[in-house]
Design a protein around this nucleic acid. Structure first.
Length: 220
DNA sequence: CTCCCGCAGG
DNA sequence: CCTGCTGGAG
C-alpha cells in the first residue's frame, strides 16, 4: 500500500472519538461485556442486517437461546423461524447449528489458537476480528462495508472489489484501530459511516473530516 | 463472483 | 419501485 501520513491517521482517530462520545449509537450488545456465545450471536444477527433491526430482537433471542446447548437441542426448523423476521434465515440457522456442533467438540470453549478459530464454521474475516476485539479485547477492525466505505473515502480508494481480500484496506483498518481505544474507535467508525458517511447520500455538510477527505476534495 | 433474506428508507 | 444493511459459503 502507499504510505499514509501518521498525522492524518491520528487526526482521524481523535475526531472520530470525539464525535462518538457525542453522537454514538446505543445498542444492547454494547452495554455489557459479552461472553463468546453472546458475542457470536450478536455478529450472526448483524450480518447484512441493520443494527437498528437487530436491536429489536437481540435480547429476546438470547432469552430464548441462552447458550450453545439451547442451539443444539432446538430443531433447525424452529431456529429458522426465529431468524425469519430479519432474513437470511436458512444460512444463519445452519451456520449456527454447525458452529454449535463444533463448539461441542471443543468442550464449548473457544480455541486459543488463531488458526483453530479461523477454521470454525461462521468464522470468516469479519467474525474472527469481531471476536478478537470484543471477547479477547485485542485491537482488531470491524471491517464491514461501512468501515470500508469510510476508510476509502477519507484515505483513498481500494484496488480490489471485495473488501475481504484487499490488503491495502486490511492494513489501513488495522493501523487505524491499533489503539487502547480500539473498541470505541471501531464503534465510532461504524456509527459515523451509518449516520454521516452514508452509502447513498453522504452528509458531507455535517462532516468534521471534509478538509482532509479524498472523496470530499474530489467532488467539491 | 453470486446467492442468500426481509425490512427500513427513499 | 429501488438501494443498502456490522458476511459467509459455494
Amino acid at each position: 500500500m502507499h504510505t499514509i501520513p501518521t498525522g492524518k491517521i491520528s487526526d482521524f482517530q481523535t475526531k472520530l472519538l470525539t464525535w462518538f462520545y457525542l453522537h454514538g449509537r446505543q445498542f444492547p450488545w454494547r452495554e455489557t461485556q459479552l461472553n463468546p456465545y453472546q458475542a457470536i450471536i450478536a455478529e450472526v444477527l448483524l450480518q447484512r442486517t441493520k443494527a437498528e433491526t437487530v436491536a429489536k430482537m437481540y435480547l429476546d433471542f438470547l432469552y430464548q437461546y441462552p447458550d450453545w446447548q439451547s442451539i443444539l437441542s432446538t430443531p433447525i426448523e424452529q431456529l429458522e423461524e426465529s431468524f425469519k423476521p430479519i432474513g437470511l434465515y436458512r444460512q444463519r440457522a445452519s451456520g449456527l447449528k454447525r458452529l454449535a456442533a463444533a463448539m461441542a467438540s471443543h468442550q464449548f470453549e473457544l480455541p486459543s489458537e488463531q488458526a483453530a478459530l479461523a477454521a470454525l464454521p461462521l468464522f470468516g474475516q469479519y467474525i474472527l476480528n469481531a471476536i478478537t476485539l470484543v471477547v479477547l479485547q485485542k485491537p482488531a477492525p470491524l471491517l464491514d462495508v461501512n468501515m470500508a466505505r469510510l476508510l476509502e473515502r477519507y484515505f483513498g480508494e481500494r484496488k480490489l472489489a471485495d473488501i475481504r481480500y484487499d490488503p491495502y484496506l486490511q492494513e489501513l483498518a488495522h493501523i487505524v484501530v491499533a489503539s487502547p481505544n480500539s473498541l470505541e474507535l471501531n464503534w465510532a467508525m461504524l456509527d459515523f459511516a451509518a449516520l454521516i458517511c452514508k452509502a447513498g447520500k453522504p452528509r458531507c455538510e455535517l462532516c468534521m473530516l471534509q478538509a482532509d477527505c479524498v472523496f470530499f476534495q474530489k467532488i467539491y
